[in-house]
Design a binder for these strands. Structure first.
Lengths: 296, 296
DNA sequence: ATGACACATGACAAATATCGATCAGGCCAT
DNA sequence: ATGGCCTGATCGATATTTGTCATGTGTCAT
């Protein structure tokens, strides 16, 4: 009888496995799942016992997951996707309407793409128009009522009560180790382009910090900035996701960079049930996984 | 806290739902799942509570599943498919080889097609050659070693210990109500074609039953026989799956038809690991669901 | 009516999950 | 090395879940 009973995966266990992968570790995953660390440890152990194979390698230095674990992880992702969609589909009302949504380039490659895709499937009568722009532009569009909502970056201290926080992020001053930062003279600054949000802050710091930045490089995409930093062109403001091993974080001589948040900010339009639902789905995804996966 | 915990489907519950659909009822499903009837009833109730909606209608006469139930059933099927494939993929060895498999036309539209498809995906290095023929032909091919295994119909009393029984079936003599069966004279018989397996039995009964059959209609496909019966051409031997509401089962005046079984019968080739695995997968599918779904 | 049948329900027992505490091993800075 | 510090494993005590048995309720065919 154990033969049959044991060969059965549990949704919860799969979700735990997934969380471990996407938050890098059992302890982290446990927080996110709202469980104790031991509970998650047990869950995985049970899963391993029932499958009679190792999923986590438990060897330092080595990748956390065994090949079998990676395999299962793949299935887990697909199963969980279906599972969550099934739950949503049961609560689906025949929703119709329009949503004009703004995104930053950053967020297009997160779980949001997946959520939007699913939203379209579940609510085929809602037309979703998505525009990808820079944060400052999106804000202006929200102001002008051109968007119903947008996913934008804001300073952590500017988060409004009505914003839905997707995740928080810290900016860092970075440079290449070979690049020597001289205490005098203007600091060569590698900047995103005009409408970049960090840039405003960076250029403003001249006033109080006494540091003068000189923009020596401009590029709209993060990849360009990363390349410029690693070739030692100067210093840049980058978020944790873009840090490379060969970059050095500057802790001295420059003002502490601001904390950021990615939020869903709604426009002023009063009622939009389709948007309510979409935001609700994003929200429940966050509460289920304790945040969005940054890369998919 | 219940908010998150409750909104979670359980694999077991989905499997129960699936079993209820495919075995037509809670009690039947319970047997198949190796549980008590109340256990399954509880399972579904819990599922309904956690989803806060009805899945089974519990109204006599009406379809057993609510629309929500049907919806979920669809997801359940997909989730269970992935789930089972995940389990299999973990035990997959890099299997290679060849399998020559025979099928009857009947079995092509059962779960077997699904299992074969999955088998190909999981073991891309195994080449599976499938031939669809009538049972008697398949037997001959097995004898000659042209097939490694075949799924054939046999009389229940002819099942060999080495056969794997997929499902059992009872044959019935059927006719249209308007067709009067006269006690004298030959009985007009609607027959599958030459190599049909029932036909042999039917023609043999002349000896002991004293009944003489006259074949008045021959057709290779079940659809043709069904049409002939409903137009009152004569009597036929049909299995339960092909019974139509307007058919009448004949219980008097003709010998009791034999019980049949669909089995996987292996050829005489000694070793074939790929075949072993395939048969194993079919077997575990059967033990998991208590048989194969006859129509997919 | 009445028995057969299919399902629901409630009480209780067994299995199983979770938690908090504790322990063991690795990593890092002194 | 050594002591903090972090991560994960393990243990015993509870809490929850899940199943079974016994029984109740409705429908249907006789």
């Amino acid at each position: 009888m154990t033969e049959l009973t044991s060969r059965r995966l549990e949704i919860d266990a799969l979700r735990a496995l997934w969380a471990i992968r996407h938050h890098g570790g059992i302890t982290r995953a446990a927080e996110v799942l709202g469980l104790s660390q031991s509970a998650v440890s047990h869950k995985i152990k049970r899963l391993e016992t029932s499958l009679d194979c190792d999923l986590l390698s438990r060897k330092p230095g080595a990748p956390m997951f065994t090949p079998a674990g990676e395999d299962l992880l793949d299935y887990a992702g697909r199963i969980l996707g279906l599972h969550d969609e099934a739950l949503l589909s049961l609560s689906k009302t025949s929703l119709a309407g329009r949503v004009a949504l703004g995104l930053t380039e950053d967020t297009t490659c997160t779980d949001l793409a997946r959520i939007l895709g699913r939203f379209r499937r579940l609510h085929p009568n809602v037309s979703v128009r998505t525009k990808v722009r820079m944060s400052l532009i999106l804000r202006a569009m929200l102001e002008r009522g051109e968007l119903d909502a947008a996913i934008i970056q804001v300073f952590a201290h500017e988060v409004r009560p009505t914003d839905l926080v997707l995740f928080r992020e810290q900016l860092h001053w970075v440079k290449h180790p070979d690049f020597a930062l001289s205490p005098e003279g203007p600091v060569p600054f590698l900047s995103f382009d005009d409408e970049c949000f960090y840039r405003r802050w960076a250029l403003d710091i001249g006033q109080d910090g006494g540091v003068v930045l000189e923009t020596v490089f401009e590029c709209a995409s993060a990849a360009g900035i990363v390349a410029a930093v690693t070739s030692g062109l100067g210093v840049a403001l980058l978020n944790g996701r873009h840090l490379q091993p060969e970059m050095e974080i500057i802790t001295q001589g420059l003002p502490v960079p601001p904390a950021l948040a990615y939020v869903v900010r709604r426009g002023r339009r009063v009622r939009n049930p389709a948007l309510d639902t979409l935001v609700g789905e994003i929200e429940s995804e966050i509460s289920r996984y304790g945040g969005l996966a940054l890369v998919s």
